[in-house]
Amino acid sequence: MILLVLVVFFLVLWLELPKLIRQRWWWELAVFAVIWALALVVSVAQIYDLPLPNPTHGLEYIFKPVSHWFEEVLS
């Protein structure tokens, strides 16, 4: 599994990196690298069952009260 994931990630690297370097788009390269690394971290953490912050829970934290308030107003 981990091998498969790494293969896919490096395939992406192989696809996109040469062009970015050739065109000297350094800023783009930086953004690319950040997203790529983030994705890698998330996937690897996922595979090894590491605890990850769940963005949905964050959003739920914000919007659940709104929902409840709305429910109360209208019931």
Binding site: V8, F9, V12, L15, E16, K19, L20, W25, W27, E28, L29, V31, F32, I35, W36, L38, A39, L40, V42, S43, Q46, L52, N54, P55, T56
Partner: peptide, 29 residues
């Protein structure tokens, strides 16, 4: 996102971002 970061093109981000979104999709729920 690429306009927000003032990138020259969005295409380099297509693949890594989709990787991120797929793995997030698994993590989220």
């Amino acid at each position: 996102l690429s306009q927000w970061l003032k990138l020259k093109d969005y295409k380099p981000l297509v693949l890594p971002m989709s990787l991120l979104l797929v793995s997030l999709g698994i993590v989220q729920f």
